[in-house]
């Protein structure tokens, strides 16, 4: 019974810590976005990094994805989907960005 109690406390504090981490990251991102404006050099980079950190925090604390053996299948699935996603997104941005640039060149000629 005591064992269960301790485990419950441990798991609950995990959710609460995750929430506080994520909240702190959100506040920082909105804070610097509001103070400096996202157009300022490096501010958007910082916001992007904070977003990435928050993704990792939520995956670890809320979705219980880590490098433990029994959640390995989930992690493999997520990593593979992320790879597919990166190919799709980077490929789209690259090709359409290139097309956009060439169209602009064409209009200037």
């Amino acid at each position: 019974m005591d064992d269960k109690h301790a485990e419950h406390a441990r798991e609950r504090s995990r959710y609460i810590r995750g929430f506080l981490f994520a909240l702190a990251l959100t506040l920082t991102a909105f804070g610097i976005g509001h103070l400096y404006g996202p157009q300022t050099p490096y501010v958007y980079l910082a916001i992007g990094v904070l977003g990435l950190l928050q993704l990792i925090v939520q995956l670890a604390y809320f979705l219980h994805i880590d490098r433990r053996r029994d959640s390995r299948e989930d992690l493999d699935l997520i990593l593979f989907s992320t790879m597919v996603l990166l190919i799709i997104i980077l490929g789209t941005v690259w090709i359409l960005g290139d097309l956009h640039m060439r169209m602009q060149m064409g209009m200037q000629m």
């Binding site: 991102a29 976005g33 404006g37 996202p38 157009q39 501010v43 958007y44 916001i47 992007g48 904070l50 977003g51 928050q54 993704l55 939520q58 995956l59 809320f62």
Partner: peptide, 17 residues
């Protein structure tokens, strides 16, 4: 909520930047 992180980071802040 994970998707929402992408939305506020890329759609909103990215749009403003």
């Amino acid at each position: 909520d994970l998707i929402w992180i992408g939305i506020f980071t890329i759609v909103y802040f990215g749009g403003l930047a």
